[in-house]
Each structure stands twice: as C-alpha cells, then as structure tokens.
Design a protein around this nucleic acid. Structure first.
Lengths: 227, 227, 227, 227
DNA sequence: AATGAATGAGCCTTCATTCAT
DNA sequence: GATGAATGAAGGCTCATTCAT
C-alpha cells in the first residue's frame, strides 16, 4: 500500500473529481452546453480548478474523453473475448456478444455516452480514442472476418464489418429516437441477450454460416446453446 | 408571372435566408455551438431578424429542423419507391436502396446533418420529425418485413428492422470516425451503389431470401458468389 | 354635428388611442419602463404609429402628460370652487376640499398618476404642466392665504401654502407606502370626506381661524364632535 | 492599525464601490433608467462585477436600497431625538425638527433620494425598508400624538400623523416642482430652521398646543426660544 | 498547491427607430 | 395615411479565463 493522506481513499483528489464531473456533464450536455462552473460545482472544486489542473476547458474535455475511452476499453471484447485459439466463427460471435453487451449496459454509462458523442462529431480528442481503442477493435473484427469462408475482397470486408458494428451501435446511438418511434416499453422489452442473439443469428446467416446447426433452434426462442 | 420587384426570384426573403443559414450552422456546430450572430451574418440579415421572424434562437432552431425534415422527406423511399403492387422482397430492396442513396448523397446535406443531430439528442423539435417523417418510414419497413416468409414475432420484427436501418444509417452517423479508422480514401472508394448492393445482399441473405434468384445476376454486379 | 366617418364616435382614431394607451402605460411603468411596442399593442396601432403620429417616444410622452394635466385640470378647484365673491376662509375650505377630492378619486386616475410621476421627477413635459396647471393653482392658494387675518410675510406665506398642499398631496403620493405601514384596510377606512374634514380643521386651527365660529357649526359638516 | 495593503483604506472594495455607484445612479435615473454598465463604469468595476457580487441588477438594486435606508436611519430622529423622559410636546417638536433637518440636508443625499424613489413606487425592496425604518418612525410619531391632550380616536390619530409627516416630506418630494413654480431662489431662501420653525408652530397650533407661550414670539421672525 | 476576486469578450434578446411600400 | 419588414444600438447576463494572494 502506498502511503497516502488520510482521506485519499474516500474522496478522490480534486483532479479526479474534476474528471468525473466533466465526464458526466460533457456526456449530458455536450462540449458547448457544459460550463466549467457547473463542472466545478459538481466536483466541489474551486472555479479556478479547471484552469489550474488542466489549463483550459478544452483540455479538460480531451482528458475526460481519453479517460472515458480507457474505462470503456475494459468492458470491450478485444482482451477478454478474443480467445485467440478459437475458430473465427466463435470469435465473431464473441465479438458481437461483447459489443452488444457493452453497448447495452456499459460499466460506466457516462464514459460511454461521452465517447459516443465525441465519435459522432470527432474533435481534438478523437484521434487518441480512435488510435488506442476504436481502430484496434475495428481491425480485430476485420481480421476475424478475413478468416471466414466467403473470402471477401477488401471493400466488402470493410462493408461487412460495418454491417456488424452498425447493428451493435444502433441500440446505443438511436435508442432515444427508437423510443420515440415505438414507445419506451417496446424498447425496454429488448434485453441485451435478445439483441445479441438476433445480431449473431442475422450476421452469421448473412455470411452463410448459420444454416446447418442453427436453423434447428431458431424455433424455440433464440437465446441458447451456440458457442 | 406576378409583378414582383427585380430581386424577388433571385434572393429569397429574409426569413428563408435565416432558415437556410440556421440549417447549415446548426448542422455544423450544434444548437449551443451556433450563435445567432453567426447565423445572421451568413443570412445577411440584421441580428434582430431572428427575434423578429422567429421570436428566439430556440424557435428558429425548431423551425429549421422542421423544414430540414420536410426537405429530406422528398428524397426518401416511401413515396417514390413504395411500388405498392410489387412483392415484399422487391419493396424491401427498394427501401434499402432508397435509404442508402439518400444517406450517401442527400439532396440537401445540411438538412440531413441537422436532422441527424436532432435525432441523436432529441429535443423540442424531435417529436414533429419523428411523427411526420421517421415513424412512417419505420412502420413502412416493418410492414414490408412482416410480409416476408420467415414470419417473425414482434420483437424480432423490430430488431430485424433495426438491423436494416442500422446498416443504412451507419454510413451517415459514423462516416467521420470511419475515415479516421481506415482513411478517407478507403471510405470514398465505397460508392453508394456498392454500399446498397452490399446491404441488400447482406440483408436478404440474412433473411434467407438471397440464394435462388440472386446467384445468377451476381456476376454483372461485381460483388458476389457467396451462399 | 360634424361629418365623420361611421366609426369615429365609437372607436377613437389612432392618435387618440395612442394617447390613451400611453397615458395608462407611462403612468404604470414610467417613461423608461414603458415600451412603445406595449403602447402600440394596447392602442391597437401599428408599431410604427408612434413615430408616425408623434415623431418619437419622448414626444408621445410629452403629449400624453400635457393631455393628462388638461384632463386633471377639469377636476380641480380653481374654476369650479373659486367662488370669487366668498370670504377667504370659505374659499380656503373650498380649495382644500376640492383638492382632497381630486386627489382621492380623480376623474381619470391614470392621468393623475402620470402627472404626479412627471412632477416627482420633472422632465421635458414639466414646464408646460407647471405653467398651465400647477402654478395657477399654487398662486391661487397663496392669494387666498394672503387675505387671511394673520398677515404673513412672503416666506411664511409660501410655507403655509406648502403645509396646505402637502396635506392634500400626501394621500396620493404616499398611499402605497402608507398601506404598507398601517395596512390597506386602515387606509381605505379614511374616506375623502374624513380626510377633507381633517385637513380643513387642522389647517384652519393652525391659522387661528378654527376656534370661535367652527366649534359651533361642526354639526352641519358631517364628521364631527371630536375635540 | 491592521496590516493592510496600501490602498485598502482609501479605495473601498469592489462591492462597496458598486453599492455606492448604484445608489447614486439608481437615485438619479430610477431602476429602469439606470444601466449596469453605467453603474460599473462609475464604480470602476468590470461589467461582470454586478453579476459576481449581487447576482443580477435587481438584487443590486435591492441591496442598494437596503443600505440606503440604513444610512438614512442614522440621521433620523427616533434614536437621537427620542428623549424618552421628555414631555410629549417636546418630543413632538424634536421629531419634527429631526425629520425636517434630515429631509432638508440628509447626510447622504443620494441615499435619501433612492429611498424616496422606492417609497414612491414600492417594489421588492420596499418591505424591508418599511419594516425596519419607516414603520417604527410612523409608530413612534403616533405614540407621541396619542399622549397629547386632544385625545383623538384612531383614524384621526392617523390623519394627524399624516399631516405632520406630509409637511416634512413635502420639501423633499416636491422640491423640484416647487422650484419650477416659485423660482429656485425663493425655495433656497427657506432654510431648514425656517421650515422647522414653521412646521412646529403650524402643527402645535393646529393641535391647540401653541397659543399661550407662542403667540408672543411670532412677530420677531420665528426661529427661537421654544424648547 | 489552491483559491476567491475580478476580468472582458461574447451571449441572446429587446429597444426605439426607419424604410420601402 | 398607414403599415409590416428590417435595422443597429444597447440592454442584462454568463462565459472561460486570469490575477494576486
């Protein structure tokens, strides 16, 4: 154990508190809509704290996004679901399930929200996030797909990857509007498992990999014994 | 011809110019990021014009979004691609092609951008847009899917619709970040036709509708011979 | 009867309506607190009407004040209560009663209010009002007092006049704050007659004119036998 | 002496300077007529200072009025002229002289002006001022009058108090218009002592308390040996 | 290391006014 | 004679930032 001052484990220090507050508030209101006053109040830090610890608002934002993607990275499939020895098909299914799960109920919702916001309108923080988090994920998926039977050329590999990711992302990027369209209750009826099952089946079938062993258990409801 | 002053047909009046400018600037910078000064400058209208014609910034925003969705509605598949007599399969393909096309190269890019922004974080204008534009589209797609052979229960109908829409939306919602990941040139290589072909094939195959009649004409389209 | 257009007797013309509206609104909100928009709306006149009929806001204000004092002048004691042949004492009592009455319940409350506002902080319209309305009244009172037995020198004549006027004015200038101090109900209990009786008695007694002949006729004046 | 930075005793801090400036400018121009920019310039404080120290213009106004009444309270008769052991007559005379004096030449003219403005059109600050300053004064006067020989009923007590206060207030509330009527020089000829003597004599005589010992010295000019 | 006071640019809005019809 | 559109200045206020401590 490191020697720390007495309160360090209960109350995070000012810098951490600022990052926490910034994450939530930037996630909720966007960069322009958030004010440093609001963030400082939430963080219980003096108004000058942002400039003291981070220089300015923009840099606080960048740091908050960077930290958010690191948090998010821990939920994500690459490390914990990569299962290097497994077949491409198993790894694809793992990828999808991991991604759907982390979209559906991220460990740190505000971190996810903030990251998605930045990705929708990439700014100064986007480069880092893409380099360290998004691109590895995307490349990982592409390599899985590359190994699968219908050996596609590069553009189609790309588009196939997009089709997979798009389905996972949809439930995060378009949840509010989907609730407006179909009603909140219909959307909440779609559990993470149901969505994951659907995306896996839809995708594998689209790739011509789902017929033999899957068409049997389609009837019974869906969430089951593949893997 | 009505007797009008000489410029009336060339220069739209102040209200129109404000809507045009608001559409572009709100689309680029978001509601908070845009300033009415900036909008008035672009519209070549006095700063007080916003208050005069629209009351305040928020109402200008709402009106801009409403008009944007009406513009976008004209590109969209429902009316011009519905082809009421055709088979569900043909109509599904038409829907996808129409949607991909209007995502790829909307007639009014800034209108599309603005609408997507509002849909990402629904505010006061979202209700109208959903009611008049988005929901009819979504219901139309659901009815097409409902008629297709693998007769799905409601939740799966919903998710299947999402899988279709997600693939179309992806190229609009995630283009900037995709360019960061794979490079702009790789993204620009994906033409609207290629994307549409891919999404149609991916989707129909996933629905078990792509094998028999399609493997014949695959040759002439370039992207082919799976499944 | 003059030949007028059909509506002229029911609806006053725009200029009159503007003066009416200006009188009320300037009276309620003051010059700075009132806006020409508000006045035009109340008058049901186009926003440009003020500038068209009166040049600018300030001139509208001046005209409104001038008209207000003319209206008020009609209630006031000089003409209808002067009774040139009567004794100074009777005329003083008449003056006081007339003034108290017109302060208590002016024929046109908003006109009175507006005039008092202008008098509290004299501006461009004050000169005319003083010349045509206030000064004649004040001089009239001074001449009455000059004829009364305790023949005072000029400064004391002035101050005595102020003592009379002050008592009458008080109930108008300080009614709101008096209600705050003593409660609205106690103020409303003070009728115009009671106040007039009191001011007459207080004043005449102060001038040494109230003892001999008044304690006898107290009975006929209505509010009495105090003492 | 405390160790302070060199200017601390010469230049009041920003908050004080703002209150000082607000007092003067609100007194001269009224709430609507004053601008916070003007106040900040006078106070040599940044435009944002008002928001920082007082929240908004309205609260600055309220605070300025509150402070103004506290300043004014120090000149006023209640504490320094109450002379608890003295006879009611002496105390009434003391009250009048104190009030006339503080109306004639208040220690802080702008504070008095501001307070009178607020009392003329009571707003959010009026309640406090009335509670803490005006009402105690008015009640104090009423209690003096209650003890005096012509034992009046409540309404007449009220009106008698108004007659006293009205005479004192007149010279402050109606000085500008009086100068317009009679000329500035005639008004300036009325010194505080002359006015006080007059009001005392007028009032005591009206109450039937001034005859015996006063009618003698009336002739010599007025400002003299009563006590 | 960290703060509370203070800054000045900019925000949206409203103002009285003027213009072209 | 009278109007609706449009103007530019100024309004109060909030912003991110910096300064002196």
């Amino acid at each position: 154990m490191v020697a720390e001052n007495s309160e360090s484990e209960l109350v995070p220090d000012a810098k951490q508190r600022l990052l926490d507050a910034a994450e939530e508030i930037f996630a909720d209101y966007g960069y322009e809509g958030a004010s440093v006053r609001q963030i400082c109040e939430r963080a219980k830090v003096n108004i000058a704290g942002v400039n003291y610890h981070f220089g300015d608002k923009e840099n606080l934002y960048v740091e908050a996004v960077k930290r958010a993607h690191m948090c998010s990275a821990r939920d994500m499939p690459i490390e914990n679901l990569a299962s290097p020895g497994a077949s491409p098909l198993v790894r694809l299914e793992g990828f999808i399930r991991g991604m759907v799960a982390s979209m559906h109920a991220p460990a740190r919702p505000s971190a996810m929200k903030l990251m998605m916001r930045e990705m929708a309108h990439p700014g100064k923080a986007a480069g880092t996030v893409v380099d360290e988090f998004i691109r590895p994920l995307a490349f990982h998926l592409r390599e899985i797909l590359r190994e699968l039977p219908p050996h596609l050329d590069e553009p189609r590999l790309l588009m196939t990857g997009f089709s997979v990711i798009a389905q996972c992302l949809y439930y995060r990027q378009n949840r509010p509007v989907s609730e407006l369209i179909f009603g909140r209750e219909h959307m909440e009826a779609l559990t993470a498992d149901m969505v994951a099952d659907h995306v896996v089946r839809f995708t594998l079938t689209a790739l011509g990999l789902g017929q033999s062993k899957r068409h049997a258990d389609d009837a019974d409801g869906g969430a089951d014994q593949r893997g």
